Simulated assay, not measured.
Amino acid sequence: MIRIAGLRHRVLDIPDLALEARQIAVIGENGSGKTTLLEVCAGIEEPGEGTVRFLDHPTSAVKVGWVGEFPDRTLLFSRVYDEIASSPRFRHRSCSETDGRVRAAAERVGIPHLLKRSVATLSGGEKALVALAAAVADDPDLLILDEADSHLDAGTAERVRGVVRESTAAHVLWCTQSMETAAGADYLLFMAAGAVRHHGTPEEVFSLLEETCFYPTLWRMLR
């Protein structure tokens, strides 16, 4: 369970929220606080007030995998292999275990052919897949994706969704602009002005957004 209590940080104002579902999509207008919420949940930012706990632990005490909208801002190493190896190395895995995790993550994401490449030579989509492989290489407890699918072609976006579905993470938080992706989540948060205005299953939340641009296009065609 992810439990948020008395959270006030920058634009955020979330008095109480308990999330038990595995895959949780976060949607809303730009500036509504989605990224800030994800950064607080990831432990990237320390909240001004309140707490975020994961399975009754602070997020600083659990393994978090992060994939951002712009991988160029978060990729740290010049070689693909070293980027994917960063999490197991930071956790002092042995060389053989680290190598196994790197190769397994690359296979899972479909990029074993990129392991020897320089990050600088990759396309934007390839960099996003490398960031995803790095995020899942050490089997995080909490996997967070901040609009990681925003600039991907349809094939690459579907590959990302497949890796997320197969992830061993207990919870996945995914901020997305794709309402079709959000519709496939177990639970949905709709944010506005720093608050969670609606939350529930996709069916419950989208029923309240039917006359807005947030209603999934495919659902609109079928209704």
Rank of each mutant, 00 (worst) to 15 (best):
Leu145Gly: 01
Ala157Ile: 02
Val163Met: 03
Gly162Trp: 10
Val164Asp: 04
Leu152Cys: 07
Trp174Tyr: 14
Ala170Gln: 13
Leu152Tyr: 06
Leu145Arg: 02
Val172Ile: 15
Ala148Ser: 14
Thr168Cys: 09
Leu143Lys: 00
Ser167Cys: 04
Ser167Trp: 02
Val164Lys: 01
Leu152Val: 05
Ala154Pro: 00
Cys175Thr: 11
Leu152Asn: 07
Trp174His: 13
Leu145Ser: 01
Ile144Leu: 05
Ala148Asn: 06
Asp153Pro: 06
Leu152Pro: 05
Glu166Ser: 12
Asp146Thr: 08
Arg161Ser: 14
Asp149Thr: 15
His151Val: 09
Leu142Trp: 03
Leu145His: 01
Trp174Ile: 14
Ser150Asp: 12
Ala148Ile: 02
Leu152Lys: 05
Met179Phe: 10
Thr156Gln: 01
Val163Asn: 02
Ala169Lys: 02
Asp141Val: 02
Ser178Met: 06
Ser167Ile: 06
Ala148Trp: 03
Ser167Lys: 01
Leu173Asn: 08
Val172Leu: 12
Leu145Asp: 00
Trp174Asn: 06
Ser178Arg: 13
Ile144Cys: 07
Thr168Lys: 15
Ser167Gly: 08
Asp149Lys: 06
Glu147Gln: 11
Cys175Tyr: 00
Val164Gln: 04
Val163Glu: 02
Cys175Val: 15
Asp149Phe: 07
Asp141Tyr: 01
Ser150Thr: 10
Trp174Gly: 01
Val164Ala: 05
Gly162Met: 13
Asp141Asn: 03
Thr168Asn: 09
Ser178Tyr: 03
Val172Gln: 08
Ala148Gln: 06
Leu143Thr: 00
Val163Lys: 05
Ser150Met: 11
Ser178Ile: 02
Glu158Trp: 09
Thr176Gln: 11
Val172Pro: 11
Val164Phe: 05
Ala154Thr: 13
Met179Gln: 09
